[in-house]
Structures are given as C-alpha cells and as structure tokens.
Amino acid sequence: MTVEQTIAQAPAGRPDGGADPPMIVGRGLRKRYGDFEAVAGIDLHVARGEFFGMLGPNGAGKTSTIAMITCVLPVSGGELHVAGLDVQRDDRAIKALLGVVPQNNNLDPDLGVLANLIAYARFYGIPGREARRRADELLELVQLSDRAGAAIDELSGGMTRRLVLARALMNEPRILVLDEPTTGLDPQARHLVWTKLQQLRERGVTMLLTTHYMEEAERLCDRIVIMDRGAIIAEGRPRDLIERHAGGPVLQIRTLDGEGGRLREALAGPLADGARIETVGDLLYIYGLDEAAGRRAVDVIGDPYRTSTRHANLEDVFLRLTGRGLQE
C-alpha cells in the first residue's frame, strides 16, 4: 500500500462523530532501553492546530517521546496514534505528514543551501520542478533567498536554524515537531524563528515543541506538559499552571556564602502560612506572599539591595514541580 492510499484510508473523524480528530493521541505510552524506562506510561492528547509544548529537565523522556511520535524509535508499550494513524504500522504515512526540526543541525554539509532542500524533497516523492518552487518559496519565508547557493558552513547559527526549519516545511507538514528550535541562538535570531512559527501556526499547522526556555514555551504554547523521570507531572495552559503552582509575585533574595540555610530558618517565622521557599543556586525564591509578609521578609534580610520582587513565570512552575532547585 502506498503512503497516499494509507493517508486516504485514515479515519476522517473521531469515533463520536466529531469533525476534528486529534493529531496526536498516546495512551499508556512507554519507552524502555534495556532496564531503563525513559517514558513510563504517559497519556498525550494534542488537538489539531494546537501549539503544544513539552518541558522537562534533561533525561525526563521528552526526546524519547518525540522519537516515538516521529516513528524513529519503536514504541515499547501502550498506544500512539498520529493523525489517526498507528505509529507501529503506518510509519511511512505518518512521517510524510510530519516536519521535524531536530535538536542538532543535521543539514547535509556536502550540499549547498538550495541543494539541501531539493535532495530532502526526493524522500517525500516531490517532483523536481515542484521541489524547486517550494524551496524558492521557503527560502523567501526564512529570509535566505540571497544565500541559495551558499555552502552550509558559511551560514551563521541563526541562518542554519532557519534553513533547518525550511527543510522541515518542504513536505507542507500538518504537524511540525520542534526539538529545542532556538537553542544557541541570539535574541534577534530567536525572535525571527518565533515569528515564523507563529505565522505557520496561523495557517493551521499543529505544533509540538520541546524547549528549555520557559519564556519560549510561555510565549508560544497554548498548552504544555511538564515531564520528569518519564512521567507527566503537570499539564495545562501556561497561565493556569503559573496561577496554580507559583501564584502572584515572587520575592527573590540573593544569599551570601553559606547563609542560605540560616535565612530559610529566620524567614520561616515572619512568613505567613502558604508561602513557600525554594533554593535555586545562590537565590531564594519565596512564593505565595501577601504584601505584609513580603515587608516582614525584607526586614529580616535587612539589606534591600539583595531583594527584589517579580511576577511568577513558567520557570518558577518548572523549578517547583521538578524539584531541581532543591536537588542541586
């Protein structure tokens, strides 16, 4: 059966008759490498057109999950459907619907910018002339038209990343998988990538993002999951997660050498019930403060230059839930 036939046979809607089938559905999904369980039975649900983020510390199971969704690694247990197709059977058909921006820039260093896109298009069976048209259009989109003939190693980090994005779009994917798409980019280059992603999203492309930049997830994602040790430990809209797990303003205190433990004790009294303290490096973060408790805490420190107040963000949620602040 050809890929095209398989896609045509894919279920057109949900069993309950809804018109919009989810793009990614996982139930009890597992990935094992020998004795080590990288993904320990997770449920996933990504709607069509959704911008979905997966966060988690290194080794949380994000990359393994992505590898199973992109049909690169076999599933060890559970079920996984992408666009209504089973990853265990219809890998070619699913891969034809996906665009992948991998963590590493694995462009073809032996071919030029345009030639990279043309060579890639052949794997999707895109005819030469059509491949050329799409390549020109995409180079325009990622602002690399004037570099069409350049060698890969002549590109800057930002240009390389944009070319990887263009390559992922050659097959006009319905789902774009972004594995740390802006790691290592300078702020301008990141903003350019974000703008392109938002444009694509507006065209109805479903997005699956992993990132270590909380700001990126907060800005782009409709919904995120936070993974840790192979499990999903939180799920929701970024704003709701912040509200639920970090609350309003955060008091941030820079501690001096070795005084962290003493300060935590000293603060325990003045802080009202419900306030929580996290240690992150040489910083103490105090969550769930009311104004009076905040003033009392600043009095305890005595030095106003070492304290500051800011709004809670996704990073606070991440640090609290994964316990990274406490562990390291």
């Binding site: 058909a93 590493n104 694995n106 073809d108 890639y120 794997f123 992922a168």
Partner: peptide, 12 residues
C-alpha cells in the same frame, strides 16, 4: 554528519 538521522525524519 548525522545525515542518516536527517533521512530517518522523512518517510525513509
């Protein structure tokens, strides 16, 4: 070059 990795992301 991880070229095979790039190819695996396609229907190959």
């Amino acid at each position: 070059q991880d070229l095979f990795g790039a190819m695996l992301a396609t229907p190959a």
